[in-house]
Amino acid sequence: MKFSKKDLIKLYTNLVRARTFDMLCTRLLAEGKFVSFYHEGAWGDAAGVGTATFLRKDDILYPHHRAHGFPHMIGKGVDPKYYLAEHCGRATGCCSGVGTVHALFEEYGILGQSAILGAQFTVSVGWGLAAKKNGTGQVVVASFGDGTLARGTWHEGANVAVLWKLPIVYVLENNGIAQYVSLEKAYPLKDMASLAAGYGMPAVVVDGQDIVAVAEAVGEAVKRARQGKGPTFVECKTIRVTSHGYGSPHMVDGEQRDMNMVEELKKREPLSMYEKNLLKQGIITKEDIEEIAKAAKEEAAAAEKFAMESPIQEDASILDQYLYAE
């Protein structure tokens, strides 16, 4: 799969935006302006942006919980300020300040999330079935981490997804740590692609730090799904250089993480690697880079202003209104 110059710049721009929002979210949480958690995603954000950037607007996307899905949603085209406002409990949030870490952008195919990991495997089955029934070539993309894959819902969902040939792309962002437990303590294998292959589901392993590789693999998987060839599994090997969530212990398997190893991991920072390649290939210039960074900062600042100036959601009458549909 080849990408045009415009596509490659779009990937870069979205990655810069996602990174800028990650920094913003971390700061807002530290300043006490978030009413929710924040699970940082920097250095592991290429997979989300690469996954979502070239999806169709009506494709269904279940964003990853890490970085709360900002990379995925920015890739998908939603305006992140409504999701930021949601994190701050504002009435202007995408869930009117009720969901905080939940996202809903129906016209962009983001139909909601669950904060209980593993829901994407079975809810995707329903989306896939509906997409198949709709018959308009919609594809469902479910993002998740290696921790989530240990849920039994994976088996229940993947099994019928293959059986029913549903147009689903499962994108695993394997960063090797599930909250505080390493992959080694969680699985008797390292490449989860083998699990998918057991169902006869085509599976591929890519470098999740290489945004082009992710976009290419997901692109091929989406193509298969659109052609009615059923689900695909894309395993992106990525990294986690932060603690599980902002403020939580930077520990794994009961011990402090080896910071030398974390520094080693940081060498695989996806944005600068990509930037270097783009410059070498003459696709962007230094001036372009500055401009993109400036625009991202302005976007983030405007989103922060929007969130902070929006009213806090304290209207109790919505509780009744939201509980049941009439």
Binding site: I60, L111, G112, A119, F121, T122, V123, S124, V125, G126, W127, G128, L129, A130, A131, K133, N134, G152, T153, E156, G157, N159, V160, L163
Partner: peptide, 21 residues
């Protein structure tokens, strides 16, 4: 007809319902 997979059945229902089924 589904396999014995209650989570797949109910999760599928939620997904399909959010898409108008």
């Amino acid at each position: 007809d589904t396999p014995i997979a209650e989570a797949a059945i109910t999760g599928c229902a939620i997904g399909a319902a959010t898409m108008g089924y």
